[in-house]
Computed example of a mutant assay.
Amino acid sequence: MTIVTAPLAGRAIGLEAVPDPVFAGAMVGPGTAIDPVREPSVAVSPVDGVVVSLHPHAFVVVDPDGHGVLTHLGIDTVQLNGEGFELHVNKGDTVQRGQAVISWDPAAVEAAGKSPVCPVVALEAAPEALSAVVADGDVKTGDALFSWEKA
């Protein structure tokens, strides 16, 4: 079983509250979302693993069980063309849970007219594979967000 932890601090709101139909409908996969604190912060890896996809606004880490976890920093933030985001790792790097991946400023994202809400998604997972999903309440970086049963 994989425990997926919060890549940043804020308030858990659940995927259905994400202002994007693809995430809200769990079309990418099940999980939860965090409405982040509005201050410059660092998004960290939610699991131990390898960075298989890395963009200024999003990253995927695949753990040793083959579980891919997507952290998406804000909604429609790809339109910011990387402005305001700083990468701390490279695609292909092995990372540890809690390791810095991307620095960003949720308040600046909001000021640019984008939602800073951050989906944290279990890619290609069946909804029933997830348990103990945190969909409300305050979370700190590193708090457990959900458990993912090994396939």
Rank of each mutant, 00 (worst) to 15 (best):
G82I: 06
P64K: 06
N81V: 11
P64W: 03
D65Q: 12
H55G: 01
L70C: 07
G66N: 10
F59P: 02
G66E: 07
G66Q: 09
H55A: 04
P64M: 05
V69H: 08
V69M: 10
L80M: 15
A58H: 03
V61E: 00
G66H: 09
V78R: 14
T77V: 11
L73H: 08
H72M: 11
V60R: 09
G68V: 04
L70Q: 03
L80V: 08
L54Y: 01
V61W: 01
P64D: 14
D63S: 10
G82T: 12
V62M: 05
D76S: 13
D65G: 07
N81S: 14
D63W: 05
D63K: 05
H72Y: 11
N81M: 14
L80F: 11
G68L: 08
P64T: 04
E83R: 15
L70P: 06
H55M: 04
H57P: 03
H72N: 10
P64V: 04
H57Q: 00
G74T: 10
L80W: 14
I75L: 15
V69D: 04
D65A: 12
V60F: 04
F59Y: 09
G66W: 11
P56I: 00
V78A: 09
G66F: 11
V60L: 07
I75E: 10
D65W: 06
G82S: 13
E83F: 14
V61K: 03
L73D: 02
L70V: 02
P56A: 01
V69F: 10
V61N: 02
I75A: 12
V60P: 06
F59D: 00
V69S: 03
D76T: 12
G66I: 06
I75K: 13
H55D: 00
E83Q: 15
H55L: 04
V62I: 06
D65V: 07
V78D: 04
H57E: 00
F59V: 00
T77E: 10
Q79S: 15
H57R: 01
T71A: 05
T77K: 13
L80N: 11
G82N: 14
H67R: 14
I75H: 12
G68F: 03
N81I: 05
A58Q: 02
H72E: 05
H57C: 01
T71N: 03
G68S: 09
I75Y: 13
I75W: 14
F59T: 02
V61Y: 01
L73Q: 07
T77C: 13
D63Q: 05
P56C: 00
N81C: 13
Q79N: 15
E83I: 14
G82K: 14
G66C: 10
V69Q: 07
H55E: 00
V61L: 02
T77Q: 14
V60S: 02
T71S: 08
I75T: 09
L54W: 01
V62P: 01
T77G: 13
H72V: 10
H55Q: 04
I75N: 11
G74D: 09
A58S: 07
L80C: 08
D65H: 10
P56W: 03
N81D: 15
H72F: 11
D63P: 05
G66P: 08
G66V: 06
V78S: 08
D76K: 15
G82M: 12
D63L: 04
G68K: 13
V69N: 05
L73G: 06
G82L: 11
V61F: 00
L73R: 09
I75Q: 11
D63E: 08
